[in-house]
């Protein structure tokens, strides 16, 4: 268990760093997919099977593909490698390191540090579905509404303004 965690953590962090640091956009997206798969592995280790598969389905199957499509449509895939180390850039990294330091200090300072996991609960898809249909039915409907709105909004945004005779 421990080994699996550290291997997966290394893969996830390496994928995330590469996704943010590589000069070529396509490489970034592919590394992002690796990071997402690593996270799905963590979810599987933690016993959240359904979330793990949903993570791969949504992030690798939809978000990464959408990013790829956006890259191809905006001709960014063949853009020259952009990696400019500038003053604001270094400042951004500094802020991020500061945030990580704060978060890590909080985690270390909280009483949670040595907490051990209770025995693994049995998470069946049936139990999840019953929760979603009973206690969480309003959030579920709201998410459905949100997704529909996002679908329509995305289509309208990306639709060319033909009325104005757009390019």
């Amino acid at each position: 268990m421990e080994t699996a965690f550290y291997v997966l953590a290394a893969v996830t962090v390496a994928g995330a760093v590469a996704a943010m640091a590589l000069p070529r956009l396509v490489h970034c997206t592919l590394c992002l997919a690796v990071a997402f798969v690593g996270l799905a592995g963590h979810f599987l280790l933690l016993g959240a099977e359904f979330v793990s598969f949903a993570q791969v389905l949504v992030y690798v199957g939809a978000v990464a593909i959408l990013v790829v499509f956006a890259m191809l449509l905006t001709r960014s895939a063949d853009a020259p490698p952009a990696w400019v180390v500038s003053r604001p850039g270094l400042l951004g990294v500094g802020v991020a390191v500061l945030v990580f330091g704060c978060l890590a200090a909080t985690v270390a300072g909280s009483g949670l540090a040595g907490r051990e996991a209770p025995p693994a609960p049995e998470v069946t898809v049936k139990a999840l579905g019953e929760r979603l249909m009973a206690e969480y039915v309003v959030p579920l409907e709201v998410v459905g509404l949100l997704l529909t709105a996002a679908l329509i909004g995305a289509v309208i945004l990306a639709l060319e303004d033909r009325a104005k005779g757009g390019t």
Binding site: M1, E2, F5, Y6, A9, T12, V13, A16, V17, A19, M20, A21, A35, L39, H42, L46, G92, V93, V95, A96, V97, V99, F100, L103, A104, V107, A108, L112, A113, G114, R115, E116, A117
Partner: peptide
């Protein structure tokens, strides 16, 4: 099973990486 703070630190690291990017 790794302890809870291992996961919390990993999550903080991911958050910081995303923020930096």
């Amino acid at each position: 099973m790794p302890p809870l703070h291992a996961y919390l630190l990993l999550s903080a690291a991911l958050f910081a990486i995303g923020l930096a990017g």
